[in-house]
Amino acid sequence: MNKFQYVKPATLNEAADILYQNGDEASILNGGTDLLVRMRDKMIKPKVVVDVKAIPELKELKYTEEEGLFIGAVVTMNEIVCSDIILEKYKILAEAAHEVGSYQLRNRATMTGNVCNASPSGDTIAPLYVLSANIKIFSKEGIKLVPIDDFILGVRKIALKPGEIVVGIQIPPIKGKNGGSYYKHSRRKDVDLATVGVAAFCNEGRWKIAYAAVAPTILRGYKAEEILNKLDVIDDTTLIPAMDAAVEEISPISDVRASKEYRFDMIRISLKRAVLAALEQYA
């Protein structure tokens, strides 16, 4: 690893100043489970590492009927998995958070880190797409909310300018009957990255679908959604057109984890399983 300066600011303003002054040479350190790996592999060589875990605003986890759920940037995956309000109202998020790495890893990893890392296989991102999450960003100019699909631009590319910090993730309240599920297909049950992932969420009969690990970014499954929205009965057979649509919507690659062909096969099965599991939650 290269030499770097470590700073741990106590306020957002202080952090923003440091980040602004150092521009590209600074990296935000959250749980560090992506950042440190990339630094070790010399994929990035920041001169300044800005630890944001001392900033009070980032530690919040709260829910209100009006604004919905706010998950502060430094809230860990394990805190999310164990949160009663998330388990009650946004179970798909707890489910996805639980899919990330191992227990030890989830003690450090954060959902904001997962989003900002913007990996196509990030497990919590597809669920955030189907929940229409917004990313809450602080800069010296103020606070802004950016829809997650505008925030993520490509593989490890996000819409964040020097001096900006993600404060957390804001998820709208959900009204009416709903149910969601994230299905992760991986080589090994535990501690593995998704070969293919599908998030399915249904609210008052309207479906939202997102695919993971099958394109440079998470993808919304608009075609599959359209088909699902029209279905009266959803089962193994009626799902087939939606499964076919999923295949058309993705552009997977072949890599050491799986061939493109296998990913095409698995998107079908993952879609089916995610939708059926979401239906089981539907209430």
Binding site: R187, R188, K189, D190, V191, D192, L193, V256, R257
Partner: peptide
């Protein structure tokens, strides 16, 4: 079920536990 040193013309493509999987407790 899991293990293979994946090679392409002598180059190891999975020299890490991200892509070389050994069984976990749940296996």
């Amino acid at each position: 079920l899991l293990e293979q040193q994946i090679m392409d013309k002598g180059r190891v493509l999975n020299p890490n536990f991200v892509d070389y999987k050994i069984p976990a407790v749940s296996d």
